[in-house]
Design a protein around this nucleic acid. Structure first.
Lengths: 345, 345
DNA sequence: CGCTACGCTGTAAGCGCTTACAAATGAAGC
DNA sequence: GCTTCATTTGTAAGCGCTTACAGCGTAGCG
């Protein structure tokens, strides 16, 4: 006897009615619903997710796919999505998509990733997917389309996939404007000349914004003022050190993320320079760490980004609910702290 | 016609054989297996996880339950577990368990958490659970036992639950020994006089280790040298500031985590003190951030802890595989960097 | 040569739910 | 009173797999 039958028996109704009552369907009389709920509670009955999925075709489970499982930006966005999804009654299963390296753009040598797209994601465990900052190969996109389920890409527009992305060019522009308005003309850029890997184009966009702002301001682009960096504190330290040690030093540093900025902060101090007296410093993200160091930043609210992506997915998953038709905007804003100041004359 | 039937037809066998072949069962002749695999590949067939779960009773999915979804220690441990589990063919679904606050120890006012234990976790979506640093109420433990599935607790021993935990007393002792051997006698403690919340007892254990070390060394415990802190960089900054500002300042600070230590690092510098000349500083965790600041730490390899928990769970999930009978040890070690030095006379 | 043993495959009964459809009930309208 | 219709409930057919059991062919053995 299946478990639902026991509940049906106790409540004196059919299993169909139990199913309907527990699913909150409208076509159940209040009295019956009450009896069923009591019976379920008394028996400690909870609907089996698998049986329900198989019968209904809906999993109440969404997948979140991320290239990094323990970096602040990613986990914070994930947490934002997670909250929205669980509040809507969904579970979330987390998939790790290893980035494809530049020397292996098709992921031929990336077995875990291959399995992800050829297997795990196709198992019909989820009703939809949120992919964070990933760049998919054509084959992967095809594979994803094959499952016929809604996919939202966060912070990386993808051909044929609904995407939510913050305007990285505008972010970079905002940061640069702040520095330029303070009178800085020698501004260094920390992070992202060459993409670290194919699944993380954000650095590139931010550098383009940096260069465009320079050009707009009539300043020239000095390669000595730019340095590649992995998107970590370490990377920021090394890149900033290199910029500060080469040629005429900058009076301001624009780091493509807060983690890079924190590394740069340490590098600047370790060279005996003062912030902001000798060097102004600005980052991007809204990482709480930056606050401790008093680093000015552009907060892009990753938590809210994740939440927005989740709501967007939910809209596709539950067409019944009212569509908030408005296009989603992912806001960001300058947060001035003590790491930026007027340039010395 | 169900999808598996198409494969069966194409391969010229029964669905039973397809199932067996694709599941890697031994009782399939090589030739048949080959034909089935080809047919599946040609049709782009992948077994439906839900149907398979319902029929077999195994989900190939484990749940990881964490109090914080975006803090370094937790996500790093989770990533370690995730890798082991996905390599073993499991998916992982992530559950957020909101910590119970001190003023609400039973979680009466914690609806998300109630739903987690009364509903989400009971839906039979997972084959087992890993709970990270959580303290369960009696009711929650009962509820968990009810589902009759293996549960591993990481870093928080629980009555009636298999637990893996690093020896926090020993960790604290190692850190203190390092400081004491360098001749420090006024050592402050940053973080964890009173538990931040009921689900995170680690701070308490570390403080106990701190006090025990002091006593062992014949030193006295000075309340002015200890300060509570939330386990964040911010918290470390504030707590360290307070300790440095009260009474006779310490010559060394022991922070209960690397994040706290980084905050303390900033606080020390902001007071115009030098590290390590004026104040030595040691943290705990192995957070890569600490490296950038040259902070000495006790690395407890959270990634490895997560992986160990996952392997432990896998052992219970797949009794067929050979038991590595050895008890699991979670190692840690002192990593000396430039933030600790001999005390001035 | 008959019998057991073994390896491989097929048959078919579920796994625990959901839901289309049918049926029963009662209220409302004429 | 009879029809119509909405509301509530029940009946039963799956959802797409897995697996116990049975069956078949061949090999080994006395």
């Amino acid at each position: 006897m299946t478990r639902i039958q026991k509940v049906a028996e106790l409540a004196g109704v059919s299993t169909a009615t139990v199913s309907r009552a527990l699913a909150g369907k409208p076509s159940v009389s209040p009295a019956t619903r009450e009896r069923v709920e009591r019976a379920a509670r008394d028996l400690g009955y909870v609907v089996s997710a698998t049986a329900s999925s198989l019968a209904s075709g809906r999993n109440r489970n969404v997948g979140i796919v991320m290239p990094f499982l323990n970096r602040w930006f990613f986990t914070t966005a994930m947490a934002g999505a997670h909250r929205v999804l669980t509040d809507a009654g969904y579970d979330v299963t987390l998939y790790h998509c290893e980035p494809n390296r530049l020397d292996d753009p098709d992921g031929a040598d990336n077995p875990r990733r291959s399995r992800l797209f050829a297997d795990s994601l196709l198992r019909k465990r989820t009703d939809g997917l949120i992919m964070v900052t990933l760049s998919l190969t054509a084959a992967e996109r095809t594979s994803l389309h094959g499952i016929g389920k809604p996919v939202i890409a966060l912070d990386r527009p993808q051909e044929g996939i609904t995407a939510l992305a913050v305007d990285n060019l505008a972010i970079a522009h905002t940061a640069m404007s702040h520095l330029l308005e303070l009178g800085h003309t020698r501004i260094g850029f920390v992070g992202g000349i060459v993409p670290y890997d194919l699944d993380f184009h954000v650095p590139l966009l931010r550098r383009q914004g940096y260069e465009a702002s320079l050009v707009d301001a009539g300043l020239e682009i000095d390669p000595l003022l730019m340095c590649d960096a992995e998107f970590t504190v370490d990377g920021g330290y090394d890149a900033a050190s290199q910029i500060l040690g080469a040629g005429e030093p900058p009076t301001a540093l624009f780091a493509a993320s807060d983690e890079l900025a924190i590394g740069a902060h340490a590098a600047i101090r370790d060279r005996g320079l003062r912030i902001p007296e000798d060097v102004s410093l600005i980052g991007i993200d809204g990482n709480p760490l930056a606050e401790v160091f008093g680093i000015t930043t552009i907060d892009q609210h990753p938590d809210a980004q994740g939440a927005a992506a989740a709501r967007e997915l939910l809209k596709e998953l539950e067409p019944t609910s009212p569509h908030a038709a408005a296009a989603v905007r992912l806001p960001f804003e300058l947060v001035e702290r003590r790491s930026t100041a007027r340039a010395r004359d």
